[in-house]
């Protein structure tokens, strides 16, 4: 069981890293600093709901650390870390209140939290309070992208639990519902 879990975490980390790096190559025509699709959050959400919160944190930190060392910058690391951690904490709190069919809600609030974390990091780094004015735009984009990535994670969790029943996925919540 333990080996399976390590292998699963490794695969998910590799997946998150690939998505993270591919996403950086996709330019978004929105002139607001920090707006992105947040596709790698799909993997974090998946790990949170299908494996465990600890595994999700592990995958998230590894992705932020390795991803920014190989394909980012020091400032990128600060923003990813600030946004990612706030996003994780929010998702962890919501995780207790949500079923597998409400994962998209987690995606929405996670994306909002990511935007808020990034804005605070940006204001801290550049010492420009005017950046706060982008907060409503970031929240708006976060709701849209978060609903998309959250739904993606939701479909993956529900389908993959059925297709790969031998993997160390947690199925506590489903049992409770049934």
């Amino acid at each position: 069981m333990k080996t399976k879990r390590i292998a699963l975490d490794a695969v998910l980390t590799a997946l998150a890293l690939s998505v993270f790096i591919i996403e950086q190559q996709i330019p978004l025509p929105i002139p607001v600093p920090g707006v992105k699709l947040g596709l790698s959050n799909v993997v974090t959400l998946f790990a949170l709901f299908a494996v465990s919160p600890l595994d999700a944190l592990l995958i998230l930190s590894l992705r932020i650390g390795i991803g920014n060392v190989f394909a980012g910058s020091v400032t990128g690391l600060i923003f990813s870390a600030a946004g990612g951690l706030l996003c994780y904490v929010t998702e962890l709190i919501l995780y207790k209140f949500l079923t597998d069919r409400q994962i998209w809600v987690c995606g929405v609030f996670g994306a909002i939290a990511h935007g808020v974390g990034q804005i605070f990091a940006a204001v801290g780094v550049s010492a420009t309070a005017e950046i706060f004015i982008y907060l409503p735009v970031l929240i708006l984009c976060g709701i849209v992208t978060g609903a998309l990535t959250g739904s993606l994670a939701q479909v993956s969790v529900i389908k993959l639990k059925k297709v790969f029943p031998f993997l160390p996925f947690r199925r506590k919540k489903e049992e409770k519902q049934n």
């Binding site: 600093p33 780094v125 420009t128 005017e130 004015i133 982008y134």
Partner: peptide, 24 residues
């Protein structure tokens, strides 16, 4: 790295500033 400042386009003095975070 992100070219966010270039993508902003023209700035006419509005409330939303042009920011290049990597170059501060």
């Amino acid at each position: 790295p992100d070219r966010c400042c270039v993508n902003y386009g023209w700035y006419y003095g509005g409330a939303s500033p042009v920011v290049c975070i990597p170059h501060k």
